[in-house]
Structures are given as structure tokens and as C-alpha cells.
Write a protein that binds this DNA or RNA. Structure first.
Lengths: 240, 240
DNA sequence: CTGAGTGAATTCGTTAGACATAGAATAACC
DNA sequence: GGTTATTCTATGTCTAACGAATTCACTCAG
């Protein structure tokens, strides 16, 4: 634990966020092992070249994600992985680009298979009039993008927005965070999501129609069909 | 927005956590409307009787949960509900005891119906030998509690631990946070979970056997059956 | 009168240093 | 040798000041 960290440079945003990101990636990558004690605040201040306040804010942030745990006299310990909140979009953002990227995408797809079909079913039942209007508008845009009528918008953006609206239309608070998680994952795995030009417009139409018709079972099946579509299977671009 | 907050007293824990909890409950209850600007840091310091450091740490914490957003010159704004991270156990803890308790339990059950069956299926496939041993030990304890052989342990505790191990045994990082969410919800809704003495030991045995046998489909069905069991339907103790 | 540009005021962001507190390791004591 | 007291260390909290960023208002040109 000598010189794990690099000096912060004027990259972007607030200071404590840069420090937090740096430490977080150290933890998520395994460079800082679970259960280990990271250097004291004063040491870290020197390593990062920031004030104690900024460093403490960074540590507090990682604390709130379940990555760290501080106690007087003991120091700050890296918590066990089972406490890390992988359903926090900021944490997911920090994970991007680490070694386990391909594996994380697989796991993410497995989560979508569990969540999205039920979300679509709930949306079919509970979406408000306003939310249905929003879904309608986004689907129209999806169709335009797919048909080539809209060349300025990327498929990933509308795809993301569509599923985001589905999550928000469930009427269930616990589905809300998935909207943000999905956004972060789409942005992070942007090369996976719709390469090869596959836009899955038919599959999305099936989901859309079922939700609009209030047919929960059909919406669930259609969303599951989408996720089992070949476009979402791993492109195995490692072999390239 | 005159005197929304009460003075902090020597209740417990660190200072900024007490302040954070107070503000969070103001937001979650709707007393602080979405999009509204909360008083400036100095005002809040005076209201809570804490230093700016402690107050800022509280605000940073709420920021990390998606509840607040601070910008220079503007102030600190309550973010829209769609950004609140309802899958954070600390946030769930803050929600406990607010008006919407009964509704939240319903939503939570709906989430479990989507997640747990898939988690059980994944656990059946991926649980490590060590994890299977842990599951075995916990299930034995469940049986003891159900049969009356173990009178010291509460059913809620072993029930919680069982499902926690299932989540951790999926081999999928994204299922990990549900273990902590489940714990918080179980503790918060402790009166709901297993009142009436219903211990669901048979249903859990079916899940356990299926996971141990590596039968994913059976595990999924068994977990779904558990959640549809009458013991988990709302006891409607409002009428009492 | 309209518009852009400039300046000032306000609020959060950051720093510095000091003291308080809690917990563990050690030392003293019985 | 076991128990208690002390000390030491790292986080927790407070105060005070300066810096930075952005909105708002004001000025000035067109």
C-alpha cells in the first residue's frame, strides 16, 4: 500500500468526486482488498494533494455506497463485497472500464431478464395517461430512428428512454432506480447495445402495443422476447 | 418553509447522520416538495444547531442517494422522485414509519416477486460449495425454529438470512444489494412478515431442495409459490 | 425599446488549523 | 495473571476565512 493512488489533476467536476472515483476504482478493481485498512486521512490528503475536508467528503461518499467503513482509532476499512451497492448508478459508473467489463454486461443482462418483463407488465396495468403519452412519443421516435427518418438521434438514446419510461410507469417506487441504472449501463456498454445495426423495432413494438392495450401478460412476454433476441446476446468482440 | 426542522438532540450516532435523517424524512414525506430549494447552509446550521461541516456532510449524503442537488449561487434543490435511489437500504430505513408504509410493503412484495424467483434459479445453478453449506446450515436452523426446537432465534431472522444467502449465491453482482434491501425491509416491516405464526417452512424447504439439487426451474417456481402464499398477503392490521 | 455585455452579489466549494471523542494498545496495579 | 487505568492515535466536529461559479441587475450600444 505504498503509492496506490495517482495525483489528482484538473480533470473535471468537484474535487471530492475525483478523489472518490479514484479510491472507488481501487476498491472495485481489487487493488484495495476487502477488509483491508486504507491509509489514514492525513496520509491520503498528502497522496491526493487535497485538503482533509475534500478527502473526508470522498470517503463519506464511498461510505454511503457501502464501499468503506470508518471508525475512530481503527481507520477506514474496505467493506466486504456483499455490502457494495451495485444498484447505484454512480458506483456503476466507477466500474466502467475495469477488467470485468464483459462479465458485468452478462450479469446486467441477467438482471434485466428478471426485472424488465415484470416492469412491462406493471406498466401495462398502471401507466398513467401522461406516461402513456410519453411512451407513445418515444416509440414514435424509435420508429423514426429505425426507419431512417430520424438520422440525428441515436438508437441507443431512444432505446434507453423507452425502457426508462417503462420503469417509471410501473407505479412501483422500487422500480424507479432501475431507470437510472439502465441509463448508466447503456452509456457504459454503448458498444454492446445496438451494434451491428440491429434495432429490434419489432420487439419493441410488441412491448409498446401490449402496454398501451393494458395487456400485462403480453407485455411481459414481449419484453422477455426482446431480451432473448440475438441482438442482445454477447457480440463476443473479444475475438475481433 | 419556516420551521420545518426540529432541533437535533443527543439521540444517537454521528451528528451528520441525525441531520441527514431529519432532512431525508422531510423530503420522503413530501414536506419538502420536489424541485424546491431548501434553505441555505448557514440557515440550516442554525436550525439544526450544528456546524457547517456536519451539515454539509449530511447534504452530501442525501446528494449521493439522489435526493438533493447543490449548485453554487442556486442553493440546494430537492431532486425529482425519479432520481431517488429506492434500492438503498439507508434510504429505505429513513422511509420507515412514514405515512405510506402499507403501500411501500405492497410495492416491496411486487419487487420480490420479480427478483427472488430468478435469484433462486441462479443460485441453483451457481451456488458455490461453501455457499451451499451456508444455506444448509441456515435451513437447518429454520427447521429448528419452525419445529420449536430452537426457541431463542426468531423466525424473521432466519428467514431473512436464508433469502440473503440466496441472493449472495447467485454469482451475479447485481443481486447482492437486494440482500441488504431485504434486511432493511424485514426489520422495518417486522410486524408484517411472519405474524400469525405462519412460518412457511414447507415452501422454504421446496426452495432449499431445488437449489441444492441444482434444479433452477424448480427453485424459481418454489420461490414464486412462497411469495404467493397467504402468509405474505397483507394482514390489513389497519382495521384493528 | 431591445439586446448584449459587464459587473456585483450570493451561495456553494475548498482550505487551514484546532479541539473533542472514542476505541485499542499498553502500562500499571492489585 | 487478570483487571483496571492510562495513553495514544485516528476519526469526528467546530470555527473562520478565502475561492469559484453562476445568477441577477445594471449599463451601454444599437
Amino acid at each position: 500500500m505504498s503509492n496506490e493512488f495517482t495525483q489528482i489533476e484538473g480533470s473535471s467536476r468537484s474535487l471530492h468526486l475525483q478523489v472518490a472515483r479514484e479510491i472507488a476504482r481501487g476498491i472495485l478493481s481489487g487493488a484495495l482488498p476487502q477488509g483491508s485498512i486504507i491509509p489514514g486521512e492525513l496520509d491520503l490528503c498528502e497522496q491526493f494533494g487535497v485538503s482533509r475536508t475534500a478527502l473526508r467528503e470522498a470517503i463519506k461518499l464511498l461510505n454511503s455506497k457501502g464501499l468503506l467503513e470508518s471508525r475512530p482509532k481503527i481507520g477506514t476499512r474496505v467493506r466486504d463485497r456483499e455490502y457494495w451497492n451495485f444498484l447505484d448508478s454512480q458506483l456503476l459508473d466507477w466500474m466502467m472500464g475495469l477488467n470485468n467489463t464483459e462479465l458485468a454486461y452478462q450479469d446486467f443482462l441477467a438482471l434485466r431478464r428478471a426485472i424488465e418483463p415484470e416492469a412491462a407488465a406493471l406498466a401495462a396495468r398502471n401507466a398513467s395517461a401522461e406516461q402513456r403519452m410519453g411512451l407513445s412519443a418515444v416509440f414514435q421516435q424509435m420508429a423514426d430512428v429505425a426507419s431512417g427518418a430520424d438520422l440525428e438521434t441515436s438508437w441507443t438514446d431512444v432505446d434507453m428512454e423507452f425502457h426508462r419510461l417503462v420503469f417509471l410507469s410501473t407505479g412501483n417506487s422500487f422500480y424507479i432506480p432501475f431507470a437510472n441504472v439502465l441509463r448508466t449501463m447503456f452509456i457504459g456498454f454503448i458498444d454492446h447495445s445496438s451494434k451491428d445495426g440491429g434495432t429490434c423495432i419489432e420487439e419493441h413494438k410488441a412491448i409498446y402495443d401490449a402496454i398501451m392495450a393494458g395487456n400485462a401478460d403480453k407485455a411481459r412476454d414481449a419484453n422477455l422476447a426482446l431480451l432473448n433476441n440475438s441482438n442482445h446476446r454477447l457480440p463476443s468482440h473479444n475475438a475481433a
